[in-house]
Design a binder for these strands. Structure first.
Lengths: 160, 160
DNA sequence: CTCGCTGTTGCAAGAAGTTGCAACAAGAAT
DNA sequence: ATTCTTGTTGCAACTTCTTGCAACAGCGAG
């Protein structure tokens, strides 16, 4: 899967400002490591990065930060809802800016293929969960695991 | 959350036999470490165990196995669909026997509370994904993250 | 029952992720 | 602009997870 976000590979100042504002609003201090992490995430506002990848990019383009700081900071940002962790299959989780995206992901466990589905198609289920259980589904960007069409078909052949 | 499976804390021979059969059917060898792991999972056929917990239980009740073996074996068992990994929030994933359970999980990101929802309520969505995308949702036991009723309400108060 | 092929295991080394703590700096108060 | 408070950081030690590899043991063939 390749999910490319910002085609220019550059962060928009507006997005970064909005992020900084959220950090302050949550009562957190705006430090250098946090700026660096947010900058990387802002450039990839549609992407999914592992902690290692984030560390790598920060190292490439300036003053590296300590891994432990990255792990802790990412947890903190997740706690205030700015980002969240997505587990696409097993393998290390990937961080992602929390934005109300208009699509969800169907991830094939066999070939890894990712299919995008308009959130509208799933919204009814979210609404239902809210009505019946008072449950607010969050970061509507979660992965549904299963087998894609192609892999489902080859499976049937195998069983034949 | 406390999910207790087999009330006797004992594995049923039938379940273990069925598991062994699946392992053989997949072309994998039935070795001692694999038996041990399956035994632990079979006792907790409704439970969710981390790799560490599995290692711990095996160590308690007999010959311990090497951690690396456990990690690899669990991956292998997941590959053949016998078990799967569930990420309830962040924190290490938990392994779980793949059975067609009749419920799903709504996990609150704030208080950790888990609500069970009959699969029947979500089945329509799965059916729809299959019709439109040919996507077969697997191990119908996945976690939907969000905020539970109680936490949603306190959030509103905070904003007031 | 024994042999042989090859999937598995345990070990060891390394990478990734966590935790405690003293030094540091963001930002409010003055 | 300076000081003070306290949330954060970087370091170091540790735990957890991964990977390469030689020795081992399922299990099918003979």
């Amino acid at each position: 899967m390749t999910i490319v976000g910002n085609p220019m590979g550059q962060s928009t100042p507006e997005l970064e400002d909005a992020i900084h504002e959220k950090i302050r609003a949550a009562g957190l201090r705006l430090t250098m490591p946090r700026r660096a992490i947010c900058a990387v995430l802002a450039v990839n506002d549609e992407g999914f990065l592992t902690t290692q990848e984030i560390l790598g990019r920060i190292g490439e383009q300036g003053v590296p930060i300590d891994p432990s700081t990255a792990y802790r900071t990412l947890d903190d940002l997740a706690k205030i809802g700015l980002i969240h962790l997505v587990h696409l299959g097993s393998s290390p989780g990937r961080w992602h800016l929390t934005v109300e995206h208009d699509h969800q992901h169907l991830v094939c466990e066999i070939c890894g293929k990712t299919t995008l589905v308009p959130t509208a198609e799933i919204q009814p289920m979210f609404d239902q969960l809210r009505e019946r259980y008072g449950f607010q589904t969050r970061h509507h960007h979660f992965a549904i695991m299963g087998h894609c069409e192609t892999c489902s078909e080859s499976e049937e052949h195998d069983h034949a």
